[in-house]
Design a protein around this nucleic acid. Structure first.
Lengths: 332, 332
DNA sequence: GATGGTGATGTAACCGGTTACATTTGGCTT
DNA sequence: AAGCCAAATGTAACCGGTTACATCACCATC
């Protein structure tokens, strides 16, 4: 394999000169630079980046821990990460962790073993062991999207509580007072925040909370489908359902229709995320749009700041309520 | 940072002994091994994998070139890749290339610069320059899903022609004779093969090909939506549409309904891929199911074979026609 | 007691770059 | 002509492991 020594020999200079000609062209004479570049070309030389990284103790790789890549919201976040990382010369080691903590810990240890410089964690879990990074040490990590309450690192998130409140208020403003909610995974801060927003809206409108209207879910269409079944079967059926993800909303709509009910005439449905399919669902989905790609881009920018030893503030990104045809005035 | 020398000092042995105690425990005496392991634990030592890789000239990273991560079919393929790679101790460098050849070439060069051992390419394009890997050299690559006709490496694919033929025959068997088709990107071998399958089925049933019924698309819901518009507007409207992807089928259904037509009563729609949403669309989508995760798993297995210098045969994976409610008997 | 073999361990070269420091070259000043 | 400085280039240490080879202790055999 052609290495820097071969090139040096070919150009009739020392390895140091070759290295300099490539890395800081301005400190070698034009003549020498010319010679070196010709030799590089002739030998088809490409620096062995493993050696470069080894020497500099920087890999320019970022680990991204994704709960599930099959969710189109995360797909967008990843697109943003990828794009920003590439612009800044970083590679992305993507890890589909399926929420498995052992796996997340294992991938995070790529940082301890110097295979990556930092971690972007898209789930509320600290994958670093206390041992590897004791309290007080600066973690080379950014926690985005679903963030820990006491995250040991900078975070990027949405004001989920306010967003959920806005979605619920939208339903209330359409005259709904019996509003079901299909939640996310039990332990997620996301679930808790969005439920609080939902309750905030109810309280503000003097609607009592009915626990029966709160259904569990896990962000998949299947769980939306199942919980909709429960809600429909209630003696006092809700006239609207707020889902914590579009995927669940689509599943819910599917079940509602199967029951012979119409959306939005019989039941209004609102989602969260604004995935691509939201516009193509029947009816098109009212939802909270998140700047998914921005989550990715910002997380990368922040992580690089951290890696370079600078201070970084937490970030809250804006959301928008997108009103489509799946929600309508309540007709009792 | 704790390195092997610190551990050696702590254990009162040489670095070679530490290395051996960790890599081949059987060739050091139990007493020494014990001492070393204790020192390792005490120092919180983790080998610097960059150094290990640098020494062994193997990175145990695989580059995966994905046309678009936002497509749920690819998301499943990637899950398969990830899973298989992890089992075998490989990391995955994921690259969302958006079909940009320059970007694919750039990422493939991670292999030339020794940042990765091999490439899994999910698109019909050879990202390796002739210069880096001259003709005849064994490319450390597997081409999966959408494969080049004259791929310079082993491939894993579906018999797209047969699958498309089966889908079309399904429509014909329901009495349809005027069948539209929404195609994939123009230059893709996938598009060509599936169109051939479509034509095979028509010929076998003595149905003349009508060019007006062939519409362009790019696998996104939006393109399905637009092409459906064209098909609906035809003087002699088709009674069925075969889409080369579920995402386009979902877009098409959305447009058909907007026009006040019903699926499948007025127009039957069949898709391709069997993505998760296919079951939750209204009506649930008849489609060709691909073993997406298997594509990923097999590609990894094959690539590792190649990397280890063994011969590998091309692979063709099986498909299944999944008949749901979006296709029905033609009622003229 | 000399010889040889074996198992355990140490020594140091090596991977391929980067870079601190040393050396050389050439122009300019005095 | 001697002295000095800056620019250009060379030399070699270094990053942290792995491993070929050397060494040593110990025991068995002749």
């Amino acid at each position: 394999m052609t290495n820097i020594r071969k090139v040096a020999e070919l150009a009739g200079v020392s390895v140091a000169t070759v290295s300099r000609a490539l890395k800081s062209p301005d400190i070698v004479s034009p003549t020498t630079r010319e010679k070196v570049l010709k030799a590089v070309d002739q030998a088809g030389y490409k620096p062995n980046l493993m050696a470069v990284q080894f020497r500099s103790q920087r890999t320019y790789n970022l680990v991204v821990l994704v709960p599930t890549i099959a969710n189109t919201f995360f797909a967008r976040v990843i697109s943003g990460i990828q794009e920003a990382a590439q612009e800044r010369g970083y590679g992305v080691l993507l890890c589909n962790t399926l929420g498995n903590e052992a796996m997340e810990t294992q991938y995070a240890s790529l940082v301890s073993t110097r295979q990556a410089d930092g971690v972007i964690q898209l789930r509320a879990f600290n994958p670093f062991s206390e041992k590897a990074f004791p309290d007080g040490a600066v973690l080379p990590m950014i926690n985005a999207c679903e963030v820990l309450d006491d995250a040991p690192c900078p975070t990027v998130k949405l004001d989920n509580r306010a967003a959920a409140r806005e979605a619920t208020e939208h339903l209330i403003s359409l005259g709904h007072r019996r509003i079901g909610m299909i939640k996310g995974p039990r332990r997620s801060p996301l679930t808790r925040d969005r439920q609080q927003g939902y309750q905030d809206a109810l309280s503000a409108a003097d609607i009592a909370l009915d626990e029966c209207l709160l259904c569990p879910g896990d962000f998949t269409p299947r769980s939306g489908y199942q919980s909709a079944e429960t809600l429909i079967a209630l003696a006092e059926r809700p006239t609207a359902i707020f889902c914590e993800s579009d995927e669940m909303a689509i599943g819910a709509i599917s079940r509602i229709k199967e029951a012979g009910l119409r959306v939005p005439e019989d039941i209004s449905v609102a989602g969260f995320d604004d995935i691509a399919f939201a516009s193509y669902s029947d009816p098109p989905l009212t939802t909270i749009a998140q700047p998914a790609e921005a989550f990715g881009r910002e997380a990368v920018a922040m992580l690089i700041e951290v890696l370079e030893g600078r201070q970084v503030d937490n970030l809250v990104l804006p959301y928008t309520l997108v009103s489509r045809a799946s929600t309508a005035t309540c007709r009792p």
